[in-house]
């Protein structure tokens, strides 16, 4: 069950999407998100969707994997959609008790659900095609200027990459602990909300203890491999922009510009 969570997973590969500089990928993801929030019509959403589909095709990531990634946030998507459905003022189509469904509501709900789904799929595309280390390298480099303001950029990016590295390990561990407690008759599926919350204690306590133990051991192992902060560190993969990076970023800029123009004309 828990193994279905694909958040933060990286699928190694050699496609164009994989070979792009992580900085360009972060930048275009941001551009893509801005574009999504500016899009207001079928045409601009169509453009954004085309962008997403092209991205998926180029990366060679299975569309199934992306859709599966939506599962954990399905609730949030539905919730926002329903909220928008009922609370958008406008031309009333149907009404019962305090609920009103408006024409605008239907559109907003639809676009909202589409926007969140596309946003999540787009960011997943980034994490699926970019190794966490490349991702944090990219972030570290993009946020580099903040170092002058005493923001511990290297430390933050190191923390993030380690967190990502341990997600699959901890998921596996949670699965194991759950099975072990079930074998002693623990029941996670029935009872009141309070009962269910209480039932989590036998999972959370061992999980935290194990996470702390892992952190402790990892810290020692990192020290043993001469880790002493970001100072004087070199990299196996030095970030370098190539022609393809400029090309893709240029294309994204053009599409964002089109979406903005469309929005300006109310399309």
């Amino acid at each position: 069950m828990l193994k279905d969570i694909t958040l933060g997973q990286f699928f190694p590969g050699t496609s164009l999407a994989h070979r792009l500089d992580p900085r360009s990928k972060i930048i275009i993801t941001v551009v893509y998100i801005v574009g999504l929030f500016c899009a207001e019509s079928f045409v601009s959403y169509g453009l954004m969707a085309a962008l997403l589909v092209t991205g998926v095709k180029v990366s060679g990531v299975a569309p199934k994997a992306l859709v599966k990634g939506l599962k954990p946030v399905l609730f949030i998507i539905c919730f926002t959609a329903v909220l928008n459905l009922f609370y958008t003022p406008g031309e009333i189509l149907a009404q019962f008790w305090v609920f009103k469904i408006t024409k605008e509501g239907i559109f907003t709900a639809f676009f909202m659900a589409l926007r969140i789904s596309m946003l999540i799929m787009g960011t997943f595309l980034l994490t699926y095609t970019t190794s966490p280390i490349a991702l944090t390298d990219g972030l570290e480099s993009l946020l580099g200027p903040l170092k002058k303001m005493k923001v511990p950029v290297h430390e933050l990016s190191m923390m993030m990459s380690i967190a990502l590295r341990f997600i699959p390990t901890l998921i596996e561990e949670t699965d194991k602990i759950m099975s072990a407690q079930k074998a002693r008759g623990a029941d996670f599926e029935s009872g009141s909300l309070l009962d269910r919350a209480k039932a989590l204690v036998p999972i959370l306590v061992p999980l935290f203890i194990s996470a702390f133990r892992r952190a402790d051991e990892l810290a020692v192992a990192m020290e043993c491999r001469c880790y002493h902060g970001g100072e004087g560190r070199t990299k196996l993969h030095v970030l370098r922009y190539h022609a393809r990076d400029y090309l893709v970023m240029g294309a994204y800029a053009a599409i964002l510009a089109s979406v903005l123009t469309l929005a300006h004309f109310g399309l």
């Binding site: 990286f10 190694p12 190794s131 966490p132 280390i133 990459s161 380690i162 990502l164 590295r165 390990t169 133990r213 892992r214 051991e217 990892l218 192992a221 990192m222 491999r225 001469c226 880790y227 002493h228 560190r233 070199t234 990299k235 196996l236 993969h237």
Partner: peptide, 19 residues
Amino acid sequence: DNQIVANVVEEDVAFGPEN
């Protein structure tokens, strides 16, 4: 599990020399 730092084998092996 508790001594591998990176998500890709080559980047983990590179960790020491990078430091």
